[in-house]
Simulated assay, not measured.
Amino acid sequence: MKKLVAISIVGLAVAGCTPTQQGAAVGAGAGAAIGAVATGTAEGALVGAAIGGVAGALVGRVAENSDDCYYRDRYGRRYTARCPDGY
């Protein structure tokens, strides 16, 4: 039960991040897991987290540079829609 609560809190915290930050967080987590399994050491997990974080941030950055524009409605909620022509 404690693991489920911890994962839920982390998931909610990441939900408020930009795509670049989300990509970095997911990449770092996946890289750490893969590095730990592949090497069986803490150093492998750290190297995997570093490499995964950088790779995830790059992927997230590309996702931010799409042809969509970001808007906010009257309640402050952020949403995306296709940009008008000329942008």
Rank of each mutant, 00 (worst) to 15 (best):
Lys2Ile: 11
Leu4Tyr: 10
Leu4Lys: 10
Val5Ser: 12
Ile7Cys: 10
Ile7Asp: 09
Ser8Leu: 15
Ser8Tyr: 08
Ser8His: 08
Ile9His: 02
Ile9Gln: 01
Ile9Tyr: 02
Val10Lys: 06
Leu12Thr: 10
Leu12Ser: 09
Leu12Met: 12
Ala13His: 05
Ala13Cys: 12
Ala13Glu: 07
Gly16Asp: 07
Gly16Met: 06
Pro19Leu: 07
Pro19Arg: 03
Pro19Lys: 03
Pro19Trp: 04
Gln21Met: 14
Gln21Lys: 11
Gln21Leu: 13
Gln21Asp: 14
Gly27Met: 04
Ala28Tyr: 00
Ala28Met: 02
Gly29Lys: 04
Gly29Glu: 07
Ala30Pro: 03
Gly31Glu: 09
Gly31Phe: 05
Ala32Gln: 02
Ile34Asp: 01
Ile34Met: 04
Gly35Met: 01
Gly35Ile: 01
Ala36Trp: 02
Ala38Ile: 03
Ala38Ser: 09
Ala38Cys: 04
Thr39Lys: 07
Thr41Asp: 11
Glu43Pro: 11
Ala45Ile: 00
Ala45Lys: 00
Ala45Gly: 04
Leu46Trp: 08
Leu46Lys: 13
Leu46Val: 11
Leu46Asn: 12
Leu46Gly: 13
Val47His: 03
Gly48Asp: 03
Gly48Ile: 01
Ala49Thr: 05
Ala50Cys: 08
Ile51Tyr: 02
Gly52Phe: 01
Gly53Pro: 07
Val54Ala: 10
Val54Cys: 05
Ala57Ile: 01
Leu58Trp: 00
Leu58Asn: 06
Val59His: 02
Val59Cys: 04
Gly60Pro: 01
Arg61Thr: 14
Arg61Ile: 07
Asn65Tyr: 06
Asn65Gly: 09
Asp68Phe: 10
Cys69Gly: 14
Tyr71Pro: 04
Tyr71Glu: 07
Tyr71Gln: 04
Arg72Val: 13
Asp73Asn: 03
Asp73Gln: 00
Asp73Ile: 00
Arg74His: 09
Gly76Ala: 03
Gly76Asn: 06
Arg77Gln: 11
Arg77Tyr: 10
Thr80His: 12
Ala81Asp: 13
Ala81Trp: 05
Arg82Ser: 12
Pro84Arg: 05
Asp85Met: 13
Asp85Gly: 11
Asp85Ile: 10
Gly86Val: 02
